[in-house]
Write a protein that binds this DNA or RNA. Structure first.
Length: 574
DNA sequence: GCCGTTTTCGGCCCGACTGTTTTCAGTCG
């Protein structure tokens, strides 16, 4: 069983207990165990059998029982009981920023609110604002939160959607008469949030029998033939998948059609028309005759275009650039020599310096930068000046014992409200490099926030601007800020701008990555991992970099160790 | 609920901000 499903179950249990008013410590224990399970290396089945899972910190008797029940029956009686007691809608309300357990209970108990619709009514008719310690602003925030939730509820994060698409692809390939099933659409383009899934399947059996068989794929609740060649499948999970039935003759254009964004497809259609082709849902036609085209490579070749990587098919300038044969050679993950932005057990991470060193060595990196939180980040266990000295001694020690990878002394300093980076200049200069990030005061005006960050960029100790816009996908908008001004300044002063690879951040947005490149900004791909099991987050950041047209030479951590250090520190000397 | 014992019960992170209030509860990171 997928660790994510187990972790989600534990998180839901924690949320229900919180809503019930259980001890905060009990709640946190379940949240911790969810994290611990997700970070467990090895399969849960083996871990349970060998007893290794029981030795993981944060995993106790209750967690083990839930895991073992989930593995054997696929569900949890603890969770089922809780779901019976508490309306589901209340859990959904927890996602509204500004509403916590106490307020939700107050709303539920006093106004009988059980779901988002009830809540919206209460916010609109004034009854919400009349509750003690509620007011007009709270009601307005709630309405804003509801509309945000509704807008985002049809989307999922990329990594979740891709996991689902992979599983679904396998199920489709198991259908008799299906030779292969390829993931297309937004997942293939590596969009950061995904609505419907798209597949193209190649048939080696009768179309009608395959269509009939699709209806019996596990988990399908609705089955809707859309045209003679496309079918919409709806799953009990809420996912919808558009499936195009293809064959050797039209596979290339079909895959391209199902992959490109609407804008890209329009551009490509127009381009094809200029070249004397008609490109429709039924394939490619010239002079009234179907053009056989078994692969996408052949499709682009026939049109006289360079192969356009799926990530670029967004309808910006990719078609004209491909016609000139000038598409970039996009970044590949194995071009990264350095692993940046990770947290250890010194602050809010759970892996040790040594574990990080071993993991990065095994992954083939030349260097890694440990970047725990700074002292102002009290919520995340930020390091005091004394802690910094202790950690630096430990890093020296690990470097003397482990070969094949070099551990660099980095830090993620908080950008304070006035724009100065945390710690004094002496402490900051003790680090090999400094990431500066905003972690509070999101409510500033655009002018204030822009000024705050511009001041940070002026500080010569700062090497990288971390998660530059602060967005949390499907949960929180970027803080208001003049992105172009910040990128312009970063280019001028030589501060690299991060693509944060945390699946919920993927910040900088790919559209702004492209803008950053145009302005001459160096990009840094940061993992922002809190556990070695999240080391491969980097792959998600690389996807965003590719989407933003990034080549190896644009990336700070594709530099050698010496080049990286030189770039990170060059302003300190002047 | 988990942990760590000075083993079987006490401790578990907290400061800043927001929106409500005239002193602070609730939320967030």
């Amino acid at each position: 069983m997928d660790k994510k499903i187990v972790a989600t179950t534990l998180e839901r249990i924690a949320a229900f207990l919180e809503l019930k008013g259980e001890s905060g410590f009990r709640v946190r224990a379940f949240q911790n165990s969810a994290q611990a399970i997700q970070g467990f290396s090895g399969t849960l089945e083996e871990g349970l059998a060998s007893g290794k899972l029981a030795t993981v910190p944060g995993v106790g008797k209750a967690t083990l029982e839930i895991v073992s029940e989930l593995l054997s029956t696929g569900s949890s009686t603890v969770l089922a009981e809780l779901e019976k007691e508490t309306p589901r809608g209340l859990l959904e309300m927890m996602k509204i920023s500004g509403l916590g357990v106490a307020k939700i209970r107050m709303i539920h108990e006093n106004l009988g609110v059980e779901n988002l619709d009830d809540l919206e009514r209460a916010a609109n008719d004034g009854s919400l604002a009349k509750l003690p310690r509620f007011g007009a602003k709270t009601a307005a925030n709630v309405l804003k939160g509801i509309s945000y939730l509704r807008r985002s509820s049809d989307f999922r994060l990329f990594h979740h959607a891709r996991a689902e698409a992979n599983a679904l692809g396998k199920a489709l390939e198991a259908v008799p008469g299906v030779a292969s099933a390829l993931i297309a659409g937004a997942v293939r383009r590596r969009c950061e949030i995904i609505g419907d899934l798209e597949f193209v399947i190649k048939l080696n059996g009768q179309r009608d029998t395959v269509i009939a068989a699709l209806g019996s794929v596990e988990g399908i609740i609705e089955f809707q033939p859309k045209s003679s060649r496309t079918v919409i499948l709806k799953f009990s999970s809420g996912t919808a998948a558009n499936v195009t039935l293809s064959n050797d003759e039209t596979f290339g254009p079909d895959l391209a059609q199902a992959t490109g964004s609407a804008n890209h497809n329009t551009m490509l259609e127009e381009f094809a028309r200029d070249k004397g082709f008609l490109w429709t849902e039924d394939g490619l036609v010239r002079d009234g005759e179907a053009v056989h085209c078994a692969t996408e490579t052949a499709f682009f070749e026939i049109l006289g275009l360079q192969f356009i990587p799926p990530e670029l098919r967004e309808g910006t300038t990719e078609v004209e650039v491909a016609e000139r044969g000038e598409l970039p050679k996009l970044l590949e993950q194995d071009s990264l020599k350095g692993f940046l932005h990770c947290h250890t057990n010194y602050s809010d991470g759970s892996s040790t310096v040594e574990e990080w060193a071993e993991t990065c060595r095994d992954l083939g990196y030349d260097y890694l930068g440990i970047t725990d939180h700074s002292q102002a980040a009290t919520y995340a266990g930020g390091l005091s000046e004394e802690d910094v000295a202790v950690q630096h001694a430990e890093i020296d020690n690990v470097n003397s014992r482990i070969s094949g990878v070099r551990v660099l002394k980095g830090v993620e300093v908080d950008i304070l409200a006035d724009g100065s980076p945390d710690y004094g200049p002496e402490i900051r200069s003790a680090f090999d490099f400094v990431i500066a990030s905003v972690h509070n005061r999101y409510g500033m005006s655009s002018d204030e926030m822009t000024g705050r960050i511009l001041r940070t960029l002026d500080d010569p100790s700062v090497s990288i601007l971390g998660h530059p816009t602060g967005r949390l996908l499907l949960a929180r908008d970027p803080y208001p800020m003049d992105v172009a001004a910040v990128l312009q300044k970063a280019a001028e002063v030589g501060v690299a701008v991060e693509i944060n690879s945390d699946p919920q951040r993927l910040d900088l947005d790919w559209k702004n990555v492209k803008l950053a490149l145009d302005l001459g900004v160096t990009i840094s791909i940061g993992a922002d991992a809190h556990n070695t099991s999240a080391a491969n987050n980097v792959e998600l950041g690389v996807g965003i970099a590719r989407k933003g047209w990034v080549e190896t030479g644009n990336v700070l951590n594709s530099f050698s160790t010496e080049e990286f250090l030189e770039h990170a520190q060059r302003r300190r000397k002047s």
